[in-house]
Simulated assay, not measured.
Amino acid sequence: MIPGWYADPEAHVFEGRYWLYPTYSARYQEQVHLDAFSSTDLVTWTKHARIVDTAAVKWANKAMWAPSIVQKDGWYYLFFGANDIQNDREQGGIGVARSRSPEGPFTDYLGKPLIERFHNGAQPIDQMVFRDDDGSYYIVYGGWRHCNIAKLNDDFTGFVPFPDGSTFKEITPKGFVEGAYMLRKDGKYYFMWSEGGWTGPNYAVAYAVGDSPFGPFERVGTILKQDSTVATGAGHHSVFQSPRSKKWYIAYHRRPLNDTGRDHRVVSIDELHFDEQGMIRPVKITFDGVVADPIR
């Protein structure tokens, strides 16, 4: 567990270290930067403060949320939501910053949002970018109970339309609220998302499995939820695998027991297990988190 109030963590392995990229959990007007954390063993973490902030992204002024990062052609591209726009007349949406290093500093890549409008009813927030096995990059995103997928072009400045001429394809499964995450494993696409209200105790993560990144995705079940003896409001997660032990882990945020602060969320890591059929077993959340898993 990393110290401080953080949420929405995305976890990766870069340059021989584990990395966490979370939202700084505070009032929207105070969410004007993003921090990162790195570790060689999942237990001891180093903070990399202000890897990007609104001084570097002139169009952003609040609510910098849910970073997602990919490495491509010697660059690290950091995707983030900003400004919590409520309609197409407001400035904001999903932006991109980039750096030569996973610890930044990141600078604004486009000078404007990559996605600045509502498409198919999806608020442009909570983006996750992933690389498919064929080398294609997709962005999966959305709030307000709608989720879209779009194919990024080669330099991440825009999109490649789908064969039917559309750019943003809705893949919303039953129960979806926000926090989209997609993983490809053993030829299957695992699509995960958060359900419930982010300020409440019943925030949770559910999943579906499909044969393509477009689904169709039928909800299988809940894999992460509160344990009233450990923590409440467990949700908005990511998944990663140790390159050495090959163990799977889930990074997520939750609320300490008996703490009613709206923004008092902490990032935690617990083990994730797949059964013999490839289904995800419900996660047991723990007080102590994971034991040391050295990356080398």
Rank of each mutant, 00 (worst) to 15 (best):
V13Y: 04
Y18E: 04
L20P: 05
S25E: 13
A26D: 14
A26F: 12
Y28K: 10
Q29I: 14
E30A: 13
Q31W: 05
V32E: 09
L34A: 11
L34C: 09
D35Y: 07
D35E: 07
F37H: 04
F37P: 00
F37K: 01
F37C: 00
F37N: 00
S38I: 10
S39H: 03
S39D: 01
V43F: 07
V43L: 09
T44A: 14
W45K: 04
K47N: 11
K47V: 15
K47W: 11
H48P: 00
R50C: 12
I51T: 10
D53Y: 12
D53F: 11
A55K: 14
A55T: 15
A56H: 09
A56F: 14
K58E: 14
W59P: 01
A60P: 00
A60M: 02
K62V: 02
K62P: 01
A63F: 15
M64V: 08
A66K: 03
A66C: 04
S68E: 04
S68F: 04
S68P: 05
I69V: 10
V70S: 05
V70E: 12
K72R: 12
K72L: 12
G74E: 03
F80K: 00
G81R: 08
N83T: 06
D84E: 09
D84W: 11
D84R: 15
I85C: 06
I85L: 01
Q86V: 08
N87R: 01
D88S: 00
R89P: 05
R89E: 15
E90T: 06
E90K: 07
E90M: 10
Q91W: 11
G92W: 11
G93F: 10
I94N: 01
I94C: 10
I94V: 08
G95S: 03
S99L: 11
S99C: 08
S99H: 11
S101Q: 13
S101P: 12
P102N: 11
P102S: 13
E103M: 09
E103L: 05
D108I: 10
Y109L: 05
L110F: 10
G111S: 05
I115A: 06
E116Y: 14
F118L: 03
F118T: 02
H119Y: 15
H119T: 14
N120D: 06
A122K: 05
A122W: 13
A122T: 07
P124Q: 10
D126Q: 02
Q127V: 14
M128P: 06
M128W: 15
V129S: 12
V129Y: 08
F130Q: 04
R131Y: 05
D134K: 05
G135W: 02
G135I: 07
